[in-house]
Design a protein around this nucleic acid. Structure first.
Lengths: 210, 210
DNA sequence: ATACTATCTTTACACTGTCAATATTTATTT
DNA sequence: AAATAAATATTGACAGTGTAAAGATAGTAT
C-alpha cells in the first residue's frame, strides 16, 4: 500500500491535460482552478508553483489545443494531392475540429488565443499556425491559377473569415441549418464564391464536375 | 435633504443599463451582479426580485444590445438606395458596430445570444433580427440580378459568415491587418467574391467602377 | 383598516482566486 | 556525506462571488 508522494512529479503537464478535460466536461463557465487541482489529486494552491495565476494555466491550455489543431490541419494537407481538394478539406477540417470539440471555439477565440496575423511578416514567419497553413495552401493554388497577386492576401483573409465565420455560427450558436455543414463549403460557396471564375475555368479545362 | 426611498421604482431597466455600462467599462471577465447592484445604489440581492439569476440579467442585456444592433442595421438599409451599396454598407455597419463596442461581440455571440436561423421558416418569420435584415437586402439584390434561386440561401449564409468572420477576427483577436477594415469588404472580397460574375456584369452595364 | 403582494435589505453559506507561511522533497554545493 | 539552497506542495486565511432564506418596507386591493 503505497503512500501518495509529496511531489507529483509531472504536475505542470497534468494540470494542462486535466484542465482541458474539465473544460470539455463542464464548459468554460464552470471551469475553476480548484477543480483542476482536485482532479490532479493535489491541493488547491499547488498550481501556483507552475503557473502565475488561473489565466496563465488557461493560456498554456490554449497553446496545447492549438497544437492539436495545427496537427490536424497539417494532416489534411498531406492527405490530398489536388490543390482544390486541399483547400476544400482544410476548410472542412477547420469546421469539424470545433464541431467535435464544441468548447474549444470560444475558449480559443475568446479574448486572447490564436492570432490572425495578416501582416506580411507575421503570416510568413511561422509555418505552424492555423493561418499560415491556410496561407500556404491558398497561395500555392493561387499561384497555379495565376490569380492576380495584389488580390491574394485579401482573398486569403476572406477565405479564412468565411470558414471561421461558418465555424463560429455553427459552434457558438444553436445554428439552424438544415443539412450537412460540409455542403456549405462544397456547394458553390467556398471555391465557387471566392474563386468563381478561376475555378470554373479550371473545371472546364479538366472537363470534370467537382 | 431627501432620503433614498426604499423602493427604487425602475430597477429592472436600470439594472440592464448599468449592467451594459459595467460591461463596457470593465469587460465580461470583471462583470458581476453585485457590482451592478452597487452601481444602482441597491443591495446585492435586490436584482433577484427582477431576474432569476445572473444569467437572466445577462440575457436581458443581450436583448437590449441586439435591439440597438438591429436599429443601426435598419438605419443603414434606409440610408442607401442602390442595391449593391446597401449590401456593402450593411456589412460595414455590422463590423463597425462591434469595433466601436469591443465588448459586445463575445458578449452577444458567446454561448447564447443572437441566433443564426437559416431554416426556411426561421429566417422568414421575423423581420427584425440581424440575419433577416441581411436576408431581405441580399434576396432583393439576388432577385434583381437573376441569381440562381437554388443558390440564394447558401450564398446568403456565406455572406453573413464572411462578415461575421471578419468581425470575429477583428474584435476577439488582436488581428494584425494593415489597412482600413472597410477595404476588406470594398475590395474584391465581399461582392466580387460572392457575386463575382453577376456584379462584374452589372458594373460593365453601368460603365462604372465601384 | 386589513390583508396581500411586490420590492428591497440583511444575513448566511458555499465556492472562487490568490496570498503568506509552512512543510517536504530534490538538487546543488561544500 | 553533510549542509545548504531551490523547487514543489500543503495549510490557512482573506476578499469577492452567486444565491438562498428570512425579515423589512411600501404600495394596492379588499
Amino acid at each position: 500500500m503505497q503512500q501518495k508522494p509529496y511531489h507529483h512529479g509531472n504536475l505542470r503537464n497534468t494540470l494542462i491535460e486535466a484542465g482541458i478535460a474539465l473544460l470539455n466536461e463542464q464548459g468554460q463557465q464552470h471551469f475553476s482552478l480548484r477543480k483542476v487541482a482536485a482532479k490532479c489529486g493535489v491541493s488547491h494552491a499547488a498550481p501556483y508553483s507552475h503557473f502565475e495565476n488561473k489565466e496563465a494555466l488557461m493560456e498554456a491550455m490554449k497553446e496545447h489545443v492549438t497544437k492539436q489543431f495545427v496537427e490536424v490541419l497539417e494532416k489534411t494537407v498531406q492527405q490530398y494531392k489536388n490543390d482544390i481538394d486541399i483547400m476544400f478539406y482544410l476548410g472542412n477540417t477547420y469546421i469539424s475540429f470545433f464541431i467535435e470539440h464544441k468548447q474549444y471555439f470560444t475558449f480559443l477565440y475568446g479574448k486572447s488565443g490564436i492570432q490572425f496575423d495578416f501582416t506580411e511578416n507575421g503570416i510568413l514567419q511561422s509555418n505552424y499556425t492555423p493561418c499560415s497553413i491556410f496561407k500556404k495552401a491558398a497561395f500555392d493554388f493561387m499561384e497555379k491559377i495565376k490569380y492576380p497577386p495584389q488580390k491574394r492576401l485579401d482573398t486569403l483573409i476572406a477565405m479564412i473569415a468565411l470558414v471561421h465565420g461558418i465555424t463560429a455560427m455553427l459552434t457558438t450558436q444553436q445554428i439552424a441549418y438544415e443539412g450537412d455543414y460540409k455542403n456549405l463549403l462544397k456547394n458553390s460557396i467556398f471555391a465557387n464564391a471566392l474563386f468563381a471564375d478561376a475555378v470554373t475555368k479550371q473545371k472546364q479545362k479538366r472537363g470534370e464536375v467537382l
